[in-house]
Amino acid sequence: MEHVAALPAQAHVGETSTGLNSRKVLMWAFLGSDCMLFGSLIGTYLVYRGNYPSGPKPSDVFDIPYTSVSAFALLMSSLAMVLALAAIQRGDIRRLKIWLLCVAGLGLVFIGGQVYEFTTFGSEGLNLTTATFGSSFFTLTGFHGTHVTFGIVWLLMLWMLAARGQMTQARSLDVEIAGLYWHFVDIVWIIIFTVVYLIPAI
């Protein structure tokens, strides 16, 4: 009876049953799970989207060109993200650093836009306590913004490691996993942009 050599217990070292990296499996499972998280938030928003008995209507406060620009910034950050990944896979750490900064920068543009938007809405009388529309709008977009913020911190940590010379071609998986997270945050916004902003509240 054959026995394979003793293996370390950690999955990310050595071999696995599927040949897939455990952290990558974890990230995809997390993204499946996060679908349900945003599913619940979007579901709530759709239940309440028409409910603004007093406060301003969505069409009163939304500034479509403005939000389109920040949505576009987030979309393009996804491009920068894949280019960062392509760079480290080639072993091009210099380009990796540039693209990582670019992703984080575009993410910051998006977050800045959201902060400005929230402030404007607040001054126009729409906030978390304005009927159920306000509650569900701010909770949904706020959760997404928190996801983006967490992603920016993560990417900046990767950039720091790269700057300190600790990122090598062999660690491209670290970038790939962060990238999966980042793209997911981007596609969630693709949905939110359509469902919340573009499809007019009827």
Binding site: T18, W28, A29, C35, G39, G43, V47
Partner: peptide, 20 residues
């Protein structure tokens, strides 16, 4: 396998939203 995870989550979420 990755598609499986993601699509299963996506389908469950879509079902829930449609139901709501």
């Amino acid at each position: 396998l990755f598609s499986g995870f993601f699509i299963f989550g996506l389908v469950c979420a879509a079902f829930m939203i449609t139901a709501f």
